[in-house]
Design a protein around this nucleic acid. Sequence first.
DNA 1: TTTCAAAGTGTATAAATGACACAATAATGA
DNA 2: TCATTATTGTGTCATTTATACACTTTGAAA
Lengths: 266, 266
Amino acid sequence: MSDDQKKQLEEFESRIDQFHPGHSIDCVILGYHDRHLKILLLKWKHAELWSLPGGFVYTHESLEDAAYRVLKERTGLGSIFLSQFHTFGDVERQTAPSAPQAVMMENLYQKLPLKDPVRFRNWIQQRFITTGYFALVDFEKTEPRPDFLGERCEWIDLQQLPELLMDHDAIIKKALAQLRIQLNYLPVGLSLLPEKFTIQDLQKVYEAILQKKLDRSNFQRKILKLGFLNRHEKQMTGAANKAPFLYSFDERNYKELLTSGIGFSM
Amino acid sequence: MSDDQKKQLEEFESRIDQFHPGHSIDCVILGYHDRHLKILLLKWKHAELWSLPGGFVYTHESLEDAAYRVLKERTGLGSIFLSQFHTFGDVERQTAPSAPQAVMMENLYQKLPLKDPVRFRNWIQQRFITTGYFALVDFEKTEPRPDFLGERCEWIDLQQLPELLMDHDAIIKKALAQLRIQLNYLPVGLSLLPEKFTIQDLQKVYEAILQKKLDRSNFQRKILKLGFLNRHEKQMTGAANKAPFLYSFDERNYKELLTSGIGFSM
DNA sequence: TTTCAAAGTGTATAAATGACACAATAATGA
DNA sequence: TCATTATTGTGTCATTTATACACTTTGAAA
């Protein structure tokens, strides 16, 4: 366990009484790299088990602030596109993961250097209602950092998800469904890209989210017509062809659009 | 206080330890009557203060089941269209209602015939994160029934909301915004009407939700083309004109539509 | 100069939208 | 029977949007 993680655990244990009871946050953090949608997952120690980065809500902290905090802790990123999508409150969502999962979790808890194992147990094993947030982040800018339960924090291809803790697969599914809906009335996909990007990059993002091919020229027309992209100098690719233009996101025009309302569909 | 309410309070106090801590449910229950959208609100005792019907979640009960239970308790209705729309978790959402509101609440609590006032206080005055559900119900079929905090439970015109408890006005606003979005991809409005209704009724519902006039003949064409309305005998209105057809909702066709996906916009 | 992908433009078809007009249909009551 | 009335169905026209595809121009590199 790294020093950083020891500190996190210490902080956690010392503030365990300051958490809002029975409520957690789970973040579906999506990034885009290499033409694929990636999700930030946490690999558990001593087990081939992965989970969504999550956390708890302090008594004096709003739900949303808690989500931002978790995001910051896991990715180092500050202000980001973050959107609540659903609250999961089934009774069985954690009491009955698979039997092997229960064993893995048990193992992990036992190996933690805890000051007060009983109090830890009482906290971690209560029933949690969890609120899901999804965040779209610039892959390049993140510095994934595991929490004290994780061995490492990693970007995983959405198409190749490993075994996930509890109901985390269902949470991801719901997040994606919501994302697709939001895409129809908010040009959400932009937050997934670095500051400067090509139209083609953006199209690939849309295709990755919507899971279907889009027509290049129509896509370009539509997006540019919305008018919140600024064109910059070209990028010299070194390839034997015309270099694509770079664009960046014009937040001011975008906010005007938001107030006047967007009708948008692909 | 009625016998019924006394029973409810008794039940509540006896099971106060069985509630999931710090979490509540608030229901935005909408009905349609007299060409207006109505919302079911609870008037508090001894005060001109209204609130959304709400409740708490039992430890052994899912969030959704709790919402259904609250709905059943307030309206007598069983299976209904119910949809989670947001979870509200601001710190200040209840710690600082207006000063007068705090006094009103205090007054009410003191007048309750409680067995264990301290325990009641501890429960009711904690910080709650609340999950909002909206329900669309057939106005005619409901039998509103107040809980032990309410003097009466009543349908109020959405256009003329009274002073509301805490952040309940914001919760209602959010519910309506969500409803408008949902209307674009689910023919949600149907649940607001009695089993048999005229196309005109349905159009009025849409107009009430969307807050704008729709063209009669275009509306009719669109709705009928979707194919989940069954036409019945005419209704004799007693007026000196052709009677309108009655329609009912064909659940089977509707479910087929759901799986194949609906593209729908007004 | 050739080659290649990017970028821009054209455009034909189909579909949906919105705004109206108009005729046919029943129910009532004078 | 006939005038009155609101419902219902249909037509249509202008506009916009979606979808698919073709073709040209551009600019960087070999």
